[in-house]
Design a protein around this nucleic acid. Structure first.
Length: 478
RNA sequence: GGUCCCAUCGUCUAACGGUUAGGACACCGCCCUUUCACGGCGGUAAUAGGAGUUCGAUUCUCCUUGGGACUACCA
């Protein structure tokens, strides 16, 4: 065994009490990255010992979100499948008198706590049931309501954290804490420690909020004779209010972001830089680069604020990096089915709109005018201070030019070369602006040649004539 | 309150005793340009405060201040 390098084994251990959020994903990502970097194993462990709050649909959400992001696990466990295992250890601890049954009522506990507080002592369990003889306690446990507590020695204890260095606590402050509600109902700290040992976890990588759980877990480890683990407590992801990302503010679930049109790579790239940074000044990272360069010495100690604008920027970047075809495939399900009648038109639209999108869900609204006739105010056709009559005249001439282009030549390049000749003559804005508005009905849109190309000759002429009519009518009215 | 953790531009961060304190997002300006976007160029903007160590501190130590996590028969 000695001399032999132990494989790195890490775990992501979410409890299925809510959908997976950014905090969870970041923890999963860093675990996964570390495992990949070390050629180790990434284990997913569903910590569902809390029967009240755990729900199967959240377990599904967690697994689906992880899969969507490409964070695939090598092994999967579920704590409720392992109750017998925990019971074994619990029984052993009880028999060896390292843990004991406690029958204190809630009122007793509250009274104790109040008394301690009033004396200015930090509250902890009094140890009242510690001395009840094992046989008596076992007998009582069969019919009385009880919990199981660990006998915690009063000593100083420290652990090594890859991010924070040596962290020291005084176990005396902890007291005999509860490790299980009963033999078949272990609590988080207990089940967690058993599993880490049995699953031969080497590194515990988790959020900073667990630092204060660590001394309890080490106390359990020592009671059971398990070997110590290496820890890495990740900085918290904070909301704009600098507090831990909570259910509200931006703690929407990953599945929500997925629905809103964020790309997995964008989420990963954004998250990996929230608390970690590669050696070089590099922001755009492939998953392979993340795996190759990941290391805990470059993980930040301080919490980081979740900045959605940067996520949006990454998302826009990765959308632009997609091929038109790939992007079209992703967009298909986000638009009315009728838009797919002309697939060629759809792909062209995607190609043109690509550089304007931040989220996939931006698409449908932004290009709706290409599939449905837009409604707009005639004034929008006017360019700066150019008189309406001039604009109308330009529109009319442009119609002639469009008509002069053969159906089979009606493509961006041809349209552009013909129309630019005219535009250079009359002034670009005075020609191109009204055409663009006629075709889009919008103050902002892709360029007129792209639009005409996408719309096709027939539809282009239809819209041009409509615009001309609108403007003439307005002109007459004045 | 107690225990623990933390502190560089608005935000994410680089610098592991010597830099005009660098990059990215956001913002502003210019260029490209018919609009929007993309792209290019440029700009504003930071070492919380105080001691100490040192020839020299963003960097090491201590204190102060500020922020955060935990403080469940939740995880």
């Amino acid at each position: 065994m000695f001399g032999q390098k132990k494989h790195v084994r890490v775990r992501f251990a979410p409890s299925p009490t809510g959908p997976l959020n950014f905090g969870g994903v970041r923890t999963a990502l860093f675990n996964w990255l570390f495992a990949k970097h070390e050629g180790g194993y990434f284990i997913l462990r569903i910590e569902d010992t809390d029967k009240e709050r755990s729900r199967p649909e959240f377990e599904t959400d967690i697994k689906e979100s992880l899969s969507w992001l490409g964070l695939h696990w090598d092994e999967l466990y579920k704590q409720t499948d392992r109750i017998a295992e925990y019971e074994k250890y619990l029984t052993s601890l009880l028999e060896r008198n390292i843990a004991y049954y406690c029958f204190c009522s809630e009122e007793d506990l509250v009274k104790d706590e109040e008394a301690q507080m009033s004396q200015g002592i930090p509250p902890k369990y009094s140890g009242r049931c510690r001395t009840i003889p094992f046989e008596e306690a076992t007998a009582r446990a069969k019919k009385e309501k009880h919990v199981i507590r660990l006998k915690v020695p009063e000593k100083e204890l420290s652990f090594h954290d890859l991010i924070r260095g040596k962290v020291t606590f005084h176990l005396g402050l902890v007291g005999d804490f509860i490790i299980a509600k009963s033999l078949k109902e272990p609590l988080y700290n207990f089940a967690n420690v058993i599993d880490d040992a049995e699953m031969e976890i080497t590194h515990v990588v988790r959020g900073e909020e667990h630092i204060s759980n660590t001394p309890r877990q080490i106390a359990i480890q020592e009671a059971l004779g398990f070997s110590p683990l290496i820890y890495a407590h990740l900085p918290l992801i904070l909301g704009a209010n600098k507090k831990k990302l909570s259910k509200r503010d931006l703690a929407k679930s990953i599945s929500d972001y997925r629905r809103e049109g964020y790309l997995p790579h964008a989420v990963l790239n954004f998250l990996v830089l929230l608390g970690w940074h590669p050696k070089e000044d590099k922001e755009i990272l492939s998953v392979e680069e993340m795996q190759k360069e990941f290391s805990f010495d470059r993980v930040q100690k301080a919490g980081g604020i979740f900045n959605i604008e940067k996520l949006d920027w990454f998302n826009g970047y990765y959308i632009r990096a997609l091929s038109d075809e790939t992007l079209a495939l992703l967009l298909e399900e986000l638009v009315p089915p009728a838009w797919m009648n002309d697939r060629n038109k759809f792909v062209k639209t995607v190609s043109v709109e690509k550089e304007r999108m931040k989220k996939l869900t931006d698409f449908a609204g932004a290009v709706k005018f290409l599939f449905e006739l837009p409604v707009y105010a005639p004034e929008l056709l006017l360019w700066k201070h150019t008189p309406a009559a001039t604009i109308a005249g330009n529109l009319k001439e442009a119609i002639g030019i469009f008509e002069g282009i053969a159906e089979e030549d009606f493509h961006k390049r041809t349209i552009e070369s013909k129309m630019m000749l005219f535009a250079e003559m009359r002034g670009r804005g005075e020609v191109l602006w009204p055409i663009r508005v006629a075709l889009s009905g919008n103050g902002a849109s892709p360029g007129p040649f792209d639009l005409a190309d996408i719309l096709g000759k027939r539809e282009t002429l239809l819209r041009m004539k409509h615009a001309y009519a609108l403007l003439s009518k307005k002109h007459e009215a004045e």
